[in-house]
């Protein structure tokens, strides 16, 4: 299991109601279902992944997070998780607003563009960085809106979004991943 899944799962209160946006093949949901809360469901755009979630016995809705979050009422979940897909949306700001509307709290993770390896890659090689969390070339990456941990913090401050628990010991320079719990 990805290491951040453990961190995310530990942020969630037992028996709370959770939505995993872009839940993939359901690995994180499965872990949370078996260890933290049964009241969890996911949204996933890939048909193949939806089938995998169903195989695991998880509740999943095939859909597009950019369009389909609007069907959920305000504050209908204690936690909404968005794991490493924020940068791939056409309109990430809208997605963040929707996460904060639908969830009382949102757990957002981002691949950190301020990570030292990323900085060095661009500084010395002069080409777009490729790391474990950013494995694609510039021409085939799904990532449209890369940001750093600092960028995300600045954004939240600007929009009066409360960062409840930021980064969990990670720093802009030293971590390849940013994990935030945010709320309005």
């Amino acid at each position: 299991m990805k290491k951040e899944f453990n961190i995310i799962a530990n942020l969630i209160e037992t028996n709370s109601k959770v939505l995993d946006v872009g839940c993939g093949d359901g690995e994180l949901m499965d872990y949370i279902y078996n260890n933290i809360t049964k009241d969890i469901r996911g949204i996933e755009i890939s048909k193949k992944n939806v089938q995998k979630c169903i195989e695991r016995g998880l509740t999943v809705i095939e859909g597009d997070a950019e369009k389909d979050l609007k069907q959920f009422p305000d504050s209908s979940f204690e936690y909404v998780i968005l794991s490493q897909t924020l940068q791939a949306f056409l309109d990430p700001e809208n997605v963040i607003n929707e996460l904060l509307r639908v969830g009382k709290k949102a757990i957002v993770t981002i691949p950190n563009f301020g990570f030292w390896k990323v900085r060095l890659h661009l500084l010395f090689k002069g080409t777009m960085p490729i790391t474990k969390n950013l494995p694609n070339e510039w021409y085939n990456t799904p990532n449209l809106h890369m940001c750093s941990i600092k960028d995300f913090e600045n954004y939240c401050n600007k929009r009066n979004i409360k960062i409840n628990s930021s980064n969990l010991g990670y720093k802009n320079l030293f971590s390849d991943l940013g994990i935030f719990i945010i709320e309005k």
Binding site: K17, R41, K47, V50, Q51, I54, T59, V60, I61, E62, G63, Q71, F72, P73, S76
Partner: peptide
């Protein structure tokens, strides 16, 4: 139907089969 159920927070899964 999915939307109607979600608006109540009901347990609903949905898949569109190709």
């Amino acid at each position: 139907i999915v939307i109607a159920l979600n608006s109540l927070g009901k347990d609903v899964g949905f898949v569109e089969i190709k």
